Simulated scan of single mutants.
Amino acid sequence: MTAIRSILTVDDDESDLFICAYTIRKFDPGITVHKAENGLAAIEVLQTIDRPDAIILDINMPVMNGFEFLERYAREFNGHAPVVAMLTSSHLSADREKALRYDFVKSYFEKPLKREDLEILDRMLSGQA
Results as ranks from 00 to 15, higher is better:
75 R>Q: 15
73 Y>H: 06
83 V>L: 02
79 G>D: 06
76 E>A: 11
112 P>E: 03
81 A>P: 04
109 F>G: 09
71 E>P: 10
107 S>Y: 13
97 E>W: 00
50 D>I: 14
71 E>T: 10
105 V>S: 00
84 V>L: 07
77 F>S: 02
92 L>V: 01
67 F>N: 03
98 K>R: 08
70 L>A: 06
85 A>F: 06
94 A>F: 02
80 H>E: 12
72 R>Y: 04
80 H>L: 07
102 Y>D: 13
95 D>E: 05
85 A>W: 07
79 G>I: 02
84 V>P: 01
112 P>W: 07
79 G>N: 04
104 F>K: 12
56 I>A: 12
77 F>L: 05
112 P>Q: 10
55 I>M: 01
109 F>K: 11
89 S>Q: 10
86 M>I: 03
83 V>R: 05
76 E>D: 12
96 R>V: 01
92 L>P: 08
84 V>A: 06
91 H>I: 10
100 L>W: 14
81 A>Q: 03
63 V>L: 02
75 R>T: 15
97 E>R: 07
79 G>V: 06
86 M>T: 09
104 F>H: 13
50 D>Q: 11
93 S>H: 14
98 K>E: 01
53 D>A: 09
96 R>D: 04
107 S>N: 15
99 A>G: 01
57 L>R: 05
114 K>A: 08
75 R>V: 14
92 L>M: 06
113 L>H: 04
56 I>W: 01
72 R>F: 09
56 I>N: 14
97 E>Y: 00
108 Y>S: 07
97 E>C: 08
87 L>H: 04
56 I>C: 10
87 L>Q: 04
76 E>R: 00
69 F>I: 03
63 V>I: 10
56 I>K: 08
101 R>N: 13
50 D>T: 13
66 G>C: 00
68 E>R: 03
114 K>D: 07
69 F>H: 08
51 R>T: 14
109 F>E: 07
58 D>G: 02
61 M>K: 09
112 P>D: 04
60 N>A: 09
67 F>Q: 05
108 Y>N: 05
50 D>N: 11
111 K>V: 08
72 R>Q: 13
62 P>G: 09
61 M>C: 09
68 E>N: 04
107 S>D: 15
78 N>P: 13
101 R>P: 01
94 A>I: 08
110 E>Q: 15
67 F>S: 07
73 Y>N: 04
50 D>Y: 05
65 N>E: 03
69 F>V: 07
58 D>H: 09
58 D>M: 05
74 A>P: 13
114 K>W: 08
113 L>S: 09
99 A>R: 00
110 E>R: 14
77 F>Q: 02
64 M>C: 06
83 V>D: 01
70 L>V: 12
107 S>T: 15
95 D>Q: 09
85 A>S: 05
80 H>C: 03
84 V>G: 05
94 A>Y: 05
111 K>R: 14
110 E>T: 14
101 R>A: 10
91 H>K: 11
70 L>M: 03
88 T>L: 01
92 L>T: 07
89 S>E: 11
81 A>E: 06
63 V>W: 12
81 A>T: 14
58 D>K: 05
103 D>K: 13
53 D>K: 02
68 E>Q: 00
112 P>S: 11
53 D>E: 00
106 K>L: 09
84 V>M: 05
107 S>G: 15
81 A>C: 10
106 K>A: 15
63 V>E: 09
74 A>D: 12
106 K>D: 05
63 V>S: 02
62 P>Y: 06
62 P>T: 01
112 P>K: 06
100 L>V: 01
79 G>F: 02
82 P>H: 10
